[in-house]
Simulated scan of single mutants.
Amino acid sequence: MNQYYFSLNISYQAFLSHYSGAASSVHVMTDNGLRLQLAASKLRPFLSQLGIRGHFRLTTDQNNKFLKLETL
């Protein structure tokens, strides 16, 4: 398993295009400087009236397939 840590601060308005499906992925920069592409649908559970804000841990398998995303 691999774990990646990153912070997000996306306003509700900015995430609307991802939520509606117009944009299917989000690019994030991990705390270690690695750039990751994440399906926008994985962030939907974390969307609030303020948008998506917080520090997250992404867990993948050895082939970098998504396992889970958690807020810290």
Score class of each variant (00 low, 15 high):
5 Y>L: 05
12 Y>D: 10
21 G>F: 10
42 K>V: 12
8 L>Q: 02
37 Q>C: 12
44 R>M: 13
41 S>I: 10
11 S>P: 09
9 N>D: 15
14 A>K: 11
6 F>S: 02
29 M>R: 10
5 Y>Q: 08
28 V>G: 01
43 L>P: 06
15 F>N: 02
34 L>F: 06
27 H>M: 09
34 L>V: 12
30 T>I: 06
32 N>Q: 15
39 A>D: 14
41 S>G: 06
10 I>V: 14
11 S>Y: 09
9 N>T: 08
38 L>T: 02
24 S>D: 14
31 D>Q: 12
38 L>M: 14
41 S>N: 09
32 N>R: 10
12 Y>P: 00
14 A>F: 06
26 V>H: 05
14 A>I: 06
25 S>G: 00
13 Q>R: 14
44 R>T: 14
19 Y>V: 00
13 Q>S: 14
35 R>S: 13
42 K>C: 04
6 F>N: 03
31 D>M: 06
22 A>D: 11
32 N>A: 12
27 H>P: 00
33 G>S: 08
16 L>E: 15
35 R>C: 08
27 H>G: 01
30 T>D: 03
26 V>L: 15
34 L>D: 11
34 L>Y: 07
29 M>Q: 12
15 F>M: 01
40 A>P: 03
26 V>P: 01
20 S>F: 07
17 S>K: 15
41 S>P: 00
5 Y>C: 04
5 Y>T: 05
6 F>V: 03
38 L>D: 06
11 S>N: 07
42 K>E: 12
12 Y>F: 15
36 L>A: 04
44 R>V: 15
41 S>H: 09
41 S>C: 06
19 Y>N: 10
33 G>D: 10
8 L>F: 06
18 H>Y: 11
16 L>N: 12
35 R>E: 12
20 S>R: 15
30 T>E: 03
17 S>N: 09
16 L>I: 12
25 S>Y: 11
44 R>A: 06
8 L>D: 09
5 Y>M: 02
40 A>S: 15
44 R>C: 05
26 V>K: 04
7 S>Y: 02
14 A>Y: 08
31 D>H: 05
22 A>H: 09
30 T>F: 03
26 V>R: 02
19 Y>K: 10
42 K>W: 13
17 S>R: 13
39 A>V: 00
33 G>I: 10
23 A>I: 13
18 H>Q: 08
